Simulated scan of single mutants.
Amino acid sequence: MSERLRDKTALITGSTSNIGQAIAEAFTAEGAHVIVSGRNKERGEHVVAGIRADGGRADFLSADLDGSPAASRDLAERAREALGGRIDILVNNAGVYPSPSTAATDEDTFDLVYGVNVKAPFFLTAAVAPVMADSGGGAIINLGSWIARLGVPLGSLYSSTKGAMETLTRAWASEFGPRGVRVNAISPGVVLPPSPPGAEPHPGQLMMRGTPAGEVGAPSAIAHAAVWLAGDEAAFVHGTVVDVDGGRTGVAVVAA
């Protein structure tokens, strides 16, 4: 690797599996010291052990980001301490995806999804971005979703939270960009970890038919975009949502 993130520090929420894990592994491969965070200590420590075995620097911090300001502030403080006093990169990746119909969504489910997907990153950014700015700047990367802009059945609750995150990306870029903190987002398509041999096709594979890619993406595809947005190569990129979705939202392929 080229060590594009050499000597940088990063906090990645929801990084004990899938996209978050891939981002953590990619950041450490590029020289960053990463905080892996999530609710599952066993999975988190497994991710950290793998990173360290490959020569990277990572630590695990358990966190249940339920949307309360206290939980977000607590993680920010513990991460800053573990990283030697500063956070250069924040990746707001943690999220949940219950998918009931609108009529079947009760208030508890609504509050849970908005708490994890919107309130938690909102208050985490509030705890991190001003300090990041006072320390000379940094980068914040939010995770959106292709269904924020292309409606799908049973996706109303989740997609609205991701639409909120994409809107916050632009608002935060305006608020913190002049102080040296770049804020951008990645909008993944259907992304799945590799399936075991003989596994049944995932329903998400059907959603990627009729796209230029023609198939689901791998977590590493999102991680590559995150490395670019976090590094100096994206120094002129502010308030942008980068679609890494196999062409799902922007392109239609018509079979002959």
Rank of each mutant, 00 (worst) to 15 (best):
P130V: 01
S160I: 02
G189E: 12
V128W: 11
A164Q: 11
L157G: 07
T125D: 01
P197M: 05
P178D: 02
P197T: 09
A148S: 14
P197I: 06
Y114V: 07
N184S: 05
S145G: 04
A139G: 04
I186W: 04
G177K: 05
A173M: 02
A164E: 09
G180V: 08
P203R: 08
D108A: 15
E166F: 03
G163P: 04
L150R: 15
H202A: 10
E166D: 12
I141R: 04
L157Q: 09
M208S: 06
A104W: 01
V128D: 09
L157V: 07
A129G: 10
F176Y: 15
A129D: 13
S145V: 12
S145F: 14
V128S: 06
A126L: 14
E200W: 08
N117M: 09
V181D: 01
A185G: 01
P201S: 01
A139R: 03
F110P: 05
T169M: 06
L150W: 03
R170Q: 14
D134G: 14
D111K: 10
M208K: 10
L168P: 12
P203E: 06
G155P: 05
R170V: 09
M165S: 08
P196R: 11
P178T: 00
S160P: 13
L168W: 11
G115F: 05
H202F: 10
V191K: 12
M165G: 08
A120C: 04
S187Q: 13
Y114R: 14
A127S: 10
V128A: 05
V190R: 05
P178Q: 02
S195A: 15
S174P: 00
N117A: 05
V118H: 05
A126D: 04
I186T: 00
W146C: 02
G210D: 15
L150K: 15
V183A: 02
G137T: 13
A120M: 06
T161I: 11
A139V: 08
K119F: 15
A126V: 00
P178M: 01
A164G: 09
I140E: 03
M132W: 10
L206V: 09
A185D: 07
F123L: 05
F122P: 03
G151F: 06
F123T: 00
Y114M: 13
W172T: 00
A164I: 11
N142K: 04
G151M: 04
R182A: 03
R182S: 02
L192Y: 09
V191N: 10
R149L: 06
V152G: 02
L154C: 01
F110R: 03
R170Y: 04
F123Y: 15
A148F: 10
M207W: 14
